[in-house]
Design a protein around this nucleic acid. Sequence first.
DNA 1: CTCAAATAGTTTTAACCTCAAAATAATAGC
DNA 2: GCTATTATTTTGAGGTTAAAACTATTTGAG
Lengths: 152, 152
Amino acid sequence: MDFATAKRINQLLTTVYGDIVRVEELALRKSQFKDISIKEVHAVDAISMYEHKTTSEVARELRITPGTLTTMVNHLVRKDYVQRIRSDDDRRFVRLGLTRRGRLIYRAHESFHRKMVESFAKDMDDEQLHIIEKALLNLEAFLEFASPTPNK
Amino acid sequence: MDFATAKRINQLLTTVYGDIVRVEELALRKSQFKDISIKEVHAVDAISMYEHKTTSEVARELRITPGTLTTMVNHLVRKDYVQRIRSDDDRRFVRLGLTRRGRLIYRAHESFHRKMVESFAKDMDDEQLHIIEKALLNLEAFLEFASPTPNK
DNA sequence: CTCAAATAGTTTTAACCTCAAAATAATAGC
DNA sequence: GCTATTATTTTGAGGTTAAAACTATTTGAG
């Protein structure tokens, strides 16, 4: 790969995520959901629609500590996006679910991402999509090699 | 594009950046540069080697406010990564430069990214690289459309 | 030339996100 | 029934950020 191309691709890779977050944040401010931050939306996304995962499971998925998620969930409960459901079989567990309002923003967020990926892969055939997925998987493998995840 | 592929690509896109940052942060902790955060390294990167950009220019590039950059630069000066150079022609401007130590970490960071992009594009020919760049540009265009950047 | 407006940067304030460690609550094993 | 373990919450502290007020400097209209 020539130097200039590497530079451009690096630039794109490192810019794109920040741009996604910025656009999402902006869209929230202009929507009916002004009281929720993008991090909180990602928590809503991880909690997801029907699974009722535990606090620890969701925290692991978000790569934050359970303590951090607890305060986040406090806010999200107060703002009526999330509900806590104590497990009946083992009352140490707290299972998390979305309220009606939580499900609304979940779907809005999902729809944004669907549109985003669609436009990302616009005019591409299966083979081209495969190349892109391969590249992203290469990247994941590099990162995994650079710093192995403790798999539990 | 079929649903499952879209899901996988979305997953990869949204995970990858966080993984890059996590790996970089971990590498820093294990290196000789333990006193600098990844955000600060990105500031060093934006300040760059020889240009002596002004505070506002660097802030714009990093998409943070000048006030935020000022406190960041305070830390980086104290830790001997960055130096402030008052402009002589217009003494309102502060130009930013790297110290010896700043240049060291600049090159280390640059090298990490070079390796990263290389492994990202491993075994790909020019045409395949072009497809990937196209996809990333599509994504940028979508984001730009979703929320136009105020170009000044 | 002088002073008001504009410009660049800094300081202050407050919010949010985060983690580590201690505290609390519940369960499991002996 | 204790003791250890597990899941969550609370507490305390630090990092990142933006907004607004403020300082220093320059520009330009009169």
